[in-house]
């Protein structure tokens, strides 16, 4: 959707046009559901976040000022809704503050199996995809949210920062740590195929 399309839709939304509300849902429900499912890890909570996102967006549409695109704004509402729910479930682990930066033990690579040489059918098998999803689920939520928006949903660094109300440097730092942790997990997982296991 271009900026002009966005502006036209915003004008209709702010005028209370119900077909515009439906269009906003139709255009964005899939991506918001994907984000919610990956953040929450289960379909029931994902659906709650999806509904809450659009209900909140409709209430706040009059205050929308086009400082970001509509889709980034929705990502922001959905991320906040998901984080609020996760915080209720895991109050100790979920904080919107900067994660405590730990050094060597947290980010230094320890697994040096080169899985790049494995056949594509091993890398892309369903079991590998499940392992990839599990690894994301196990990321601390502060890293998970950045990784999902940036590397899975394909937002730019700036859009991710905007959606999560973070600085650019915080996004880069969290993305780096998330990617390093996932690399470590995938290396450990795929190492079994390089150490004699058969497909």
């Amino acid at each position: 959707m271009t900026q002009a399309d966005d502006a036209a839709l915003v004008a209709r939304l702010q005028a209370g046009d119900q077909t515009a509300y439906a269009q906003l849902v139709e255009d964005n429900a899939s991506r918001i559901y994907r984000l919610a499912l990956r953040m929450m890890g289960n379909e029931e909570d994902a659906e709650d976040v999806l509904q809450e996102t659009f209900l909140s967006a409709f209430k706040a549409i009059d205050k929308f000022q086009s400082r970001s695109s509509l889709s980034t704004w929705l990502y922001r509402i959905a991320s906040n809704a998901a984080l609020m729910r996760l915080r209720k479930k895991e109050p100790v682990q979920v904080s919107v503050d900067e994660p405590i930066e730990r050094d060597d033990g947290d980010t230094l690579p320890r697994q040096f199996f080169d899985f790049c040489c494995l056949p594509e059918e091993t890398l892309l098998r369903d079991e590998a995809h499940e392992e990839m999803k599990r690894a994301v689920d196990e990321l601390p939520v502060t890293l998970r949210s950045v990784f999902i928006l940036r590397d899975i949903e394909g937002l730019s660094t700036e859009e991710t920062a905007n959606a999560l109300d973070l600085s650019i440097s915080a996004v880069k730092s969290r993305l780096m740590r998330a990617r390093l942790k996932l690399r470590e997990e995938l290396s450990t997982y795929f190492a079994r195929y390089g150490n004699g296991a058969q497909n």
């Binding site: 899939s30 990784f147 990617r179 995938l186």
Partner: peptide
């Protein structure tokens, strides 16, 4: 190599559909 491959594999992860 594995860091770059990790990023690529996640870019290729199939997207779940909304039921």
């Amino acid at each position: 190599n594995t860091f770059t491959k990790t990023v690529t594999l996640y870019h290729q992860l199939p997207a779940p559909e909304i039921p």
